[in-house]
Design a protein around this nucleic acid. Structure first.
Lengths: 179, 179, 179, 179
DNA sequence: CATGAATGAGACTTCATTCAT
DNA sequence: CATGAATGAAGTCTCATTCAT
């Protein structure tokens, strides 16, 4: 992605997204962001009232692009079973692409304070949409929640062990479970 | 827990455990720890070479006590199904007790850098032992992994929504699935 | 020198120069520097990436001003002998002015670690320029080195005993040696 | 040198001497000393009331052993010229042996505060004895001071450039100057 | 809309020293 | 004579944010 020609605001969001996801939210300082985004400090605060506001934008953008990617991956399939399996393929691809850093919403959840409702609600919205995604595919709510749980656990497990092992196992299980 | 009469090292670990779990690792400074543990800063560094070393001890202690709690909860049951169900009861109880802060190992995982092998391996050890815990109960490995995935997902989900809803649903599912 | 109206960076360098030279490099903390320079700590680190970078600037500035002083002292003389003698006069004057603290490059040399190439090379540059200064005046290299050695030894000796005694003796010797 | 079987006090002085000379006085902490000397902290303060007292002992010991080494090097020669030349040989040998760290008395001088009379007087004593050493050999005071200045300057110069170059030049000069 | 300079508060860590045993 | 635990002060450096231009 060519940053040079993008407007400052986009550069900030892009750089921050990389850094927040790879090193964590608290471990990433404003200074590092503006330096790598080649933006003056005051310009940063012109666009974002605070670091937390940047975090919100980061999550919103991620929410959008992540689901776009997911839908792009699954839309070519028609059968529910195939759609579900390609959701797990998407997971594997993202793990490779992003170095097994897991779910950036859950990572953020680990770092925020319990009273931070603004960020928490974005995280909740994201997970609720994921649940609805599976409900839409599968139809039956309880089964959809089981797949959702597999999905969440696979995401976590691949972050813990930095492998796709459990995802592969789970795809096999799904092949047997869903007729 | 009465801190006053405990030796400084224990006070440090106890206070740090509370704070790391409730506010996160990076959000908790040495200053806050020593102030609440009523310990001089240099005393802290006499006991722990660095903050990371304290993190390691925190995770090791947590690993030990968490499994003690889990085993204490499940050992009175004999049937595998009952044992599994009480593991989820344990989860619910911990959520209440600790304000839905989720799994401290996964929270720490979100905050460390990818190259931090020391801490990562403690996290991996913990999750591997949890898998083995379910394998021991259930016998069959694939089924055990499914329960493990339910467990992980429930832990995450209750941290996201600050409710026990998914845990309750999952316990009902398990009652039907395991005959 | 009126500090109040100077920009922060100059205030820092000026105050640090005084303190480094009078108390030594390691004995002078950032806190003392910023307090006396009336500058916030973060402002300091905006201007200097580290204390060592300040040390480098300190030596560079000193290198420049010290030679300016030396040349100012000697340029009014024409005969080599007179030029050399006024170099020693300069030494005496600096001793009085700076409380017999000796050569700040040699003082720094005592404090740095052997692998600190950045600072070492500034020190070497300074001493090489001093040798060249005497070579330019005297013409013959071996004789110039003898004067250089006298100069170095006098600088050291006056720091050890806090007197100008050896300098006076040496000036007399030079009067006899150089015809 | 086998440290294990020596009494604690000797171990402290030996270790401190190495560290003070190689890394500097302020850069060497008590903790590093007692750790490498394998001595408890309180034991250290049983033997030395303060770090400064250890510094004094370090300099006193060094003063003794350094002159022993010098005399050992020069006593086999009879002619003044030869004695002087072997003093410079001693310098070269010490440079090699101690990694061109220069004169530990001058290094200490760079680190102490101007009002530290206790340490200053040890340094002065050492340099005075060196002057007397050359006076004893040469007889004539003024000539002796010239040799003393050569010696001091060579010591400094070899610390600056980490070479023996100026020492070699100076030995050649002395061969010509002293008939 | 963009900027470099400045900031108070706090980060983690080490200093030389003393105390109770 | 020896010791491990504890300490107040200070060390260097970074945090998110604001200000004047």
């Amino acid at each position: 992605m060519e940053l040079k020609n993008k407007p400052p605001r986009e550069r900030i969001v892009y750089v921050a997204s990389q850094l927040f996801h790879q090193q964590g939210y608290n471990a990433t300082g404003i200074n590092e962001i503006i330096e790598k985004a080649k933006v003056a400090k005051a310009s940063f605060y012109q666009h974002f009232k605070s670091k937390e506001n940047l975090a919100l934008e980061y999550l919103e953008v991620r929410h959008k692009t992540w689901f776009e990617g997911l839908k792009h991956f699954t839309e070519e399939k028609t059968a529910p079973k195939e759609k579900v399996l390609s959701a797990f393929d998407y997971l594997e691809q993202m793990n490779e692409k992003e170095n097994f850093r897991g779910c950036c919403f859950l990572n953020m959840l680990s770092e925020i304070q319990p009273d931070n409702v603004r960020i928490l609600s974005v995280i909740q919205k994201h997970k609720t949409e994921l649940q609805n995604f599976f409900i839409d595919i599968i139809g039956e709510e309880n089964d959809a929640f089981i797949i959702y749980m597999f999905f969440e656990a696979c995401m976590i497990d691949s972050q813990v062990y930095r492998t796709q092992n459990l995802i592969e196992k789970t795809k096999n299980n799904i092949k047997n479970l869903m007729k």
